[in-house]
Structures are given as structure tokens and as C-alpha cells.
Design a protein around this nucleic acid. Structure first.
Lengths: 129, 129
DNA sequence: TCTTTACCTTCCCCTAAGTGTAAGGTTTAT
DNA sequence: ATAAACCTTACACTTAGGGGAAGGTAAAGA
């Protein structure tokens, strides 16, 4: 199938699919006649796989790693588990940072009159030495 | 003072401070003799202000907006409050997404044997149609 | 005074993960 | 035959800077 169909089936944009081909992430056959990329069912599965992994905050390089494990029928599952748990603790860290940020900002907003006067504790907090 | 001192005082890298000058965010005087940038105390305060706002996840453009409010002695505090509350709800949204992500990944990891056999529910979940 | 060292400048390339657009070739439908 | 829909490559742009080269300037030591 052509890239348009692969794009629809994988729910990725054509641009993204083409990008993945350019960086050798999912490389379809390319017709020597027309130059069109020819995607197989297998390719579409890989694209979907990557789409999910990306939604799970895996970087392209991590996707590449997971994909090679996915393609290797003999991979030990502990490798995949290890990568996944690392990702979980990474997300935990980011969650904590964001929570703190959120609470501080919210505190500042709650202490701001929010009226037409210039006095503003938010800006004051930002300009603290 | 020169950029090195302004960098130390503001706790930003020289590269970052120079970048902010280039994008007209904090523009110091520039000596016509030596070409050196000359930072005032006021400039350093602005740099610190931006450093804090950036830590609070405000984009450069949002910093620009906050900075102009900060510089305007007559600004109404409600504008600042509005921007801040928008940022809080933006962070809330991201927090929820990350939480879901984290739980799903953690669930998958907990259901993976993590041994030397190839069977792996994580990769299976990623390749689900 | 000379030289070394530390500091400063501009300029260009690189990052991640694509998006936008232009110019042009191909296929399909009317 | 031609227009619409699809495909191609190639280049620039995005965020928020970081790395490093080539070269000018200033301050300190011998």
C-alpha cells in the first residue's frame, strides 16, 4: 500500500510516517519505477507500535530499542521490563516536579487580588532576590 | 558590568544571557568601543525574573508578556493572575496525562515476568491492533 | 613592556520530533 | 485531455539554547 493508506491505518500523519522512513525507523520498499514507498501490513504494525510507544513518552531512540526487541523473537523479557521501569521512575520524577510547580503557582494566584490595581504578589515573587 | 558577572548574578549561563539579548528579551547597552555588552543592576533583576518564570514552565513568549507587565507600573494585577491561572490549569492537564501514562506503564511492567524468556506483555500491548 | 590568561565578540552547526511549503512527478476519475 | 488527488525530494522553521571556532580585548604577572 502507499503511504497515505499506511498513514490512515497507523493513525500517524503522512509527514510523520515519511520522517520515520527517512531516519530508518520503519523503512518500506520503495518502487524504482515511481519512487512511491510501498508499505506492508508488517510495516503498519510497526508504525502502530511506535505510535503507542511515543504516546507512552518513549523517545524515538527508545522506540528504536523497543522495536528491535519486538522484532527479535528471542529477546529476554527482562530487558523490556527494565526499560519500562526506568521510564516509570522517570515519569514519577517529572510528576513530582510538576506537582510542586503547580502548587507554588496556585498559591501565588490565590494570594493575588486580581483587580485593576498594580500590586501583584506573583510578579513580586518572581523578582525576589 | 560585563556578561560574565551578569551571568553569575542571575544564575544563568553566558550562552543563555547572550541568547536573551539576541532575541530582544533583555537588551543591555553595548559598548561601541569594545562591543562588550554592559549590564545594569536592573538588567540582572530582569534576568533573574525570567530565570524564575522559566522554572515555572513559562515559555519565552510568556516571559516576554510577564516582563512587560512587570515593567509597567500601572498594570492591573488581574492580567498577571489570569495568565498564571491558565498556566496552572495547563499543568493540571499535563499532570493527568502523565499519571495515566505512569499507571498504564507500571501495570504492564508488573505483569511482565522479566525473565529470559521472550514472552512479554509490554510488547504485546504495544502491538495490539 | 611583553606575554599569558581570562574574558568577550560574532558566526555557524547541532539538538528532538516533527510541520509547512514549494516545485514537480504519477495516478485516477471525469 | 485535463483536473483532482496522491506521491516525491528538498529546504526552512519550530524551542530554548549548547558547542566550538576564529578572533578581538583586558587585566595580571614576569
Amino acid at each position: 500500500m502507499n503511504i497515505g493508506k499506511a498513514s490512515k491505518l497507523s493513525e500517524l500523519t503522512v509527514k510523520t510516517v515519511r520522517y520515520y522512513a527517512n531516519i530508518d525507523l520503519v523503512k518500506p520498499n520503495q518502487s524504482s519505477l515511481t519512487g512511491y514507498r510501498e508499505y506492508s501490513e508488517e510495516d503498519v504494525l510497526k508504525l502502530k507500535f511506535i505510535g503507542k510507544a511515543r504516546k507512552f513518552n518513549f523517545s524515538i531512540n527508545e522506540c528504536r530499542e523497543l522495536l528491535s526487541l519486538y522484532e527479535n523473537q528471542n529477546r529476554p523479557s527482562k530487558e523490556v521490563k527494565k526499560i519500562t521501569l526506568e521510564k516509570v521512575s522517570e515519569i514519577d520524577k517529572k510528576l513530582n516536579e510538576l506537582k510542586n510547580l503547580r502548587d507554588e503557582l496556585n498559591y501565588l494566584a490565590n494570594n493575588c487580588n486580581g483587580d485593576d490595581r498594580p500590586n501583584c504578589p506573583i510578579l513580586e515573587a518572581f523578582s525576589k532576590k
